[in-house]
């Protein structure tokens, strides 16, 4: 159970204030969607949660302890691009994390340990719907498959927090819907807290338990430099989504569904779309 506390965090680059006085409590097992206009500091906040950047003022706590100043295996990440390693196959990418963790000198597993790990990795690959692609290189996969791979790779480490930086932004709508189902299922099944940066409000409301909007409260040109963004809206989804429990409207859709028309008529709500005659 992992809670994140962001306490009075400021982030400044020289004179430019990006985030000001941001305070946010993120409950264990929640799925927080960070939304806001471009350049409002969503990604900066995510990088601070990752440990890639440090707050100028304030602090970030993970279960009550301050965050270490660099990224680590307790926080996984999936980016929009460059999330997987081009020189490793699908299987190699998914095995990499545990291999590195277990072999601090060679970074490789051998023999029985390797076979056990490969089996584990194959299970994870199948769980994200990539079974059969184990021997392919990322460049041979479509964008959606690459993001599935990135998820599988990150989840092998059993991260307590999963950070997503517009992970599905470059995918076309059909593929995106599919991967949303996968994401929802993974969040339901695995004990992790998710923070996702997104541009897509629909995506935020489809996946999140809570939508946090960042924006600048002052936007006159002369104020842009010295006033940063902060939380302007904090919306809890209602009825609440709880990890691992079905909610009223989260009807289970068939997995791996490429076709949006399948969602047009959910059971019990048959409605004829009026034809244009």
């Amino acid at each position: 159970m992992t809670a994140l506390s962001i306490e009075n965090v400021w982030k400044e680059y020289g004179d430019q204030i990006v985030l000001e006085n941001l305070t946010l409590e993120i409950a264990p097992r929640s799925f927080v969607a960070l939304v806001g206009p471009s350049g409002c500091g969503k990604t900066t906040l995510l990088r601070m949660l990752l440990g890639q950047e440090q707050p100028t003022r304030g602090r970030i706590l993970l279960d009550g302890t301050p965050l270490p100043p660099e990224p680590g295996p307790d926080r996984g990440v999936v980016y929009q691009r460059y999330s997987v390693f081009p020189h490793l196959t699908v299987l190699g990418n998914v095995m990499l994390g545990p291999e590195l963790q277990a072999n601090r000198l060679t970074g490789r597993s051998f023999g029985a340990a390797r076979r056990a790990l490969a089996d584990q990795a194959r299970e994870m690959i199948a769980a994200v719907g990539l079974a059969g692609a184990e021997a392919k290189y990322p460049a041979q996969l479509s964008g959606g498959m690459q993001q599935r791979l990135a998820l599988a790779q990150a989840l092998m480490m059993k991260p307590r927090v999963l950070l997503l930086d517009e992970p599905f932004g470059a995918l076309d709508p059909g593929i995106r819907t599919e991967i949303h189902h996968l994401m929802k299922r993974l969040w339901n099944e695995l004990p992790m807290t998710v923070v996702m940066v997104t541009h897509d409000l629909r995506e935020a409301f489809t996946l999140g338990t809570r939508i946090v909007a960042l924006d600048r409260t002052r936007s006159r040109p002369e104020e842009l430099l010295r006033y940063g963004a902060t939380v302007t809206k904090d919306i809890a989804i209602w009825p609440p989504r709880v990890a691992g429990r079905a909610t009223l409207y989260d009807t289970e859709h068939p997995q791996a569904q490429d076709d949006l028309t399948a969602f047009a008529s959910p059971a019990g709500t048959t409605r004829q779309t009026p034809s244009l005659i």
Binding site: V77, Y82, F85, E99, L100, T106, Q153
Partner: peptide, 27 residues
């Protein structure tokens, strides 16, 4: 090499040495 790759390797528990060995060297 994209910075994202290095950070990603860190989230996969890699040390500087292991990043060199398994991420940077082969590439």
């Amino acid at each position: 090499l994209p910075r994202e790759q290095i950070v990603k390797a860190e989230t996969l528990s890699a040390s500087t040495w292991l990043i060199g060995l398994r991420v940077v060297l082969p590439q």
